[in-house]
Simulated scan of single mutants.
Amino acid sequence: MSQAASIRATVATSNNLTSTASLAGRIFLSAIFILSGISKIGAPAMMIGYIGSVGLPFPSWALGIAIAVEILGGAALIAGYRTRTTAAILATFSVFTALIFHSALADQNQFIHFFKNIAMAGGLLQIVAFGAGRFSLDARRQ
């Protein structure tokens, strides 16, 4: 194999790995949003009470918005549809939910949930910066 062919093979392998890792990352990040949205549908009264307990107005509306953001945003992220915008919305949602629902940092459980949300926002900002990759609807539109 010539050196040029070897370089092309290495680049192709690297591009496939990058594209596959990008898709896997989007799926992994989306899972928590989709599952959380589905769980809210399964126990709406509990969630309305929880949302109301932190002082947010209109807890029923807030619940509907949260479900829509989590399920639709998670599905769009997996599909790679308007990925940078979707990831930015989900990152913002993650930071706001960390600040609103997990701000009692003296409680170890809340501390872990707070920084889980912040870490998720960090991963989502990587998607904002670098896009969805080749295996996405966004790549097909270009």
Rank of each mutant, 00 (worst) to 15 (best):
T85E: 09
Q126R: 08
S136I: 10
R141W: 10
A104P: 00
A76V: 10
R8W: 00
V11W: 04
S6A: 14
F28A: 15
F130G: 03
R8Q: 12
L137V: 15
Q126C: 12
T83R: 08
N16W: 10
V69K: 02
A76N: 13
P57T: 07
R140K: 15
T18F: 06
S39T: 14
A139R: 06
S94L: 10
V54N: 07
L35W: 11
A21P: 01
G37Y: 00
R141P: 00
Q142V: 13
I38A: 12
A88F: 01
I118R: 02
S14R: 08
G52E: 05
G55H: 08
L17W: 05
L137Y: 06
E70F: 03
F28S: 14
G131L: 11
I127M: 12
S14Q: 08
I32C: 06
W61S: 11
H113Y: 08
T97Q: 07
F115S: 08
L63P: 01
A88P: 02
S22N: 14
G123K: 02
A79Q: 05
S14N: 04
Q108I: 14
D107W: 10
R82H: 15
F96Y: 03
S14E: 04
H102M: 10
S30Q: 08
F135L: 15
M1A: 13
P59I: 01
T18A: 13
W61E: 07
A31E: 08
I112R: 09
A75R: 04
P59Y: 02
I48G: 00
E70H: 05
I48E: 04
A139E: 02
R84T: 13
S30G: 15
H102R: 10
M120I: 15
A106E: 12
W61G: 13
L29R: 02
R134Y: 14
P57L: 06
S6H: 08
N15I: 03
S103G: 07
I51S: 01
M1P: 05
D107A: 09
V54T: 14
I78A: 03
A104D: 15
S136W: 02
T92W: 08
L105A: 03
F33N: 00
L63W: 02
L29V: 14
D138V: 10
M1G: 14
T85I: 15
A31Y: 08
S136A: 12
Y50H: 11
Q142E: 15
T18Q: 12
P59S: 06
K116P: 03
S30M: 07
R84D: 04
H113L: 15
S60V: 08
R134Q: 14
G49H: 02
A129E: 10
S94G: 10
A75D: 04
A24E: 05
A132D: 01
I32P: 00
L99W: 09
M120E: 05
V128D: 07
S19Y: 04
Q126A: 13
N109I: 14
F28P: 03
S39I: 07
M47I: 09
V54M: 10
T85Y: 09
F111W: 05
S103R: 12
P57W: 03
P44E: 07
S30N: 05
L77K: 04
